[in-house]
Amino acid sequence: MATKAALEAQLAVVAGFENPKVALEQYPTPPDLAAHLVHLADLRGDVDGKTVVDLGTGTGMLALGAALRSPARVVGVELDADALETAVDNARRVGASAPVHWVRGDATRLPLCLSEREPVTVLMNPPFGAQNENAHADRAFLETIASLADVSYSVHNEGSKEFIEAFADDAGADVTDAFRATFDLDHQFDFHEAERRELDAEVFRIEW
């Protein structure tokens, strides 16, 4: 198994959003966070031989991270056609050997039909719902996961632990791991006052 540092180096070539859309909260997942999440999933046996689905894949960071390990296949679902086009280009840059299928669609109304015998791991960095018109956007993603995944790894806004645990409990699922993550975001939108800001987040592993 390649090291986490090696995976991060491979993902450093992944291009971000050329014209990020504020309504979709299109922030790139940093290579170090993606490498950490994928490496953890691989260590827990949640990647090798599994179908890995990246909901709201954006330009493909988490999907391609998984594809650089040994999944059966990877599916990246994204609503924005421009982002998917970049994801396809990124797959060429990364040179992943595992098959990656890019699907344009709404992750909250998933256009997929997977076999019940097919073990599925979901990786996702969903919209946090930071914009008023997009409040609680991550809940809809979790609702999709509940009917799809055997296990999931997801990134959420800081302070989400109580909500995530309550959601999982209602769904009969178990939160097995939780850790904090901090990453830097470059200035992307007009309402961003600083050129760079630090974002505090939380990552959860859930068995469904």
Score class of each variant (00 low, 15 high):
Gly56Gln: 06
Thr57Gly: 05
Gly58Asn: 07
Thr59Phe: 01
Met61Cys: 10
Leu62Glu: 00
Leu62Ser: 02
Gly65Asp: 09
Gly65Gln: 05
Ala66Asn: 05
Ala66Cys: 03
Ala66Gln: 06
Ala66His: 03
Ala67Pro: 06
Ala67Leu: 08
Ala67Gln: 12
Ala67Ile: 06
Leu68His: 10
Arg69Phe: 01
Arg69Pro: 02
Ser70His: 15
Ser70Ile: 11
Ser70Gly: 13
Pro71Val: 09
Pro71Cys: 11
Pro71Phe: 12
Ala72Cys: 06
Arg73Val: 07
Arg73Gln: 14
Arg73Thr: 09
Arg73Phe: 09
Val75Ser: 09
Val75Pro: 06
Gly76Val: 10
Gly76Arg: 11
Val77Gly: 08
Glu78Phe: 00
Leu79Val: 09
Asp80Cys: 00
Asp80Asn: 10
Ala81Asn: 10
Ala81His: 13
Asp82His: 12
Ala83Gly: 05
Ala83Glu: 08
Ala83Phe: 04
Glu85Tyr: 03
Glu85Leu: 05
Thr86Glu: 06
Ala87Val: 06
Asp89Trp: 00
Ala91Gln: 12
Arg92Pro: 00
Arg93Tyr: 02
Val94Thr: 08
Val94Tyr: 04
Gly95Glu: 02
Ala96Asp: 04
Pro99Trp: 01
Val100Gln: 07
His101Glu: 14
Val103Asn: 10
Arg104Phe: 01
Gly105Phe: 03
Asp106Ser: 04
Ala107Asp: 03
Arg109Leu: 11
Arg109Val: 05
Leu110His: 08
Leu110Pro: 06
Leu110Ala: 00
Leu110Asp: 03
Pro111Gly: 09
Pro111Phe: 07
Leu112His: 11
Leu112Arg: 11
Cys113Met: 13
Cys113Ser: 14
Leu114Glu: 11
Leu114Trp: 02
Ser115Cys: 06
Ser115Tyr: 01
Arg117Trp: 12
Glu118Cys: 12
Glu118Ile: 05
Glu118Asp: 15
Glu118Ala: 10
Val120Met: 06
Leu123Cys: 00
Met124Cys: 11
Met124Trp: 10
Met124Thr: 15
Asn125Asp: 08
Pro126Arg: 06
Pro126Tyr: 01
Pro127Leu: 04
Pro127His: 07
Pro127Phe: 04
Pro127Met: 05
Phe128Tyr: 15
Phe128Ser: 02
Gly129Asp: 04
Gln131His: 13
Asn132Val: 14
Asn132Met: 13
Asn132Pro: 14
Asn134Arg: 15
Asn134Leu: 04
Ala135Met: 11
His136Gln: 15
Phe141His: 15
Leu142Trp: 15
Leu142Val: 09
Glu143Arg: 13
Glu143Trp: 09
Glu143Lys: 13
Thr144Arg: 06
Ala146Phe: 12
Ser147His: 15
Leu148Asp: 10
Asp150Gln: 10
Val151Phe: 07
Tyr153Ala: 01
Tyr153Met: 00
Tyr153Leu: 05
Ser154Lys: 05
Val155Gln: 08
Val155Gly: 00
Val155Cys: 03
His156Glu: 09
Asn157Tyr: 00
Asn157Arg: 14
Asn157Ile: 10
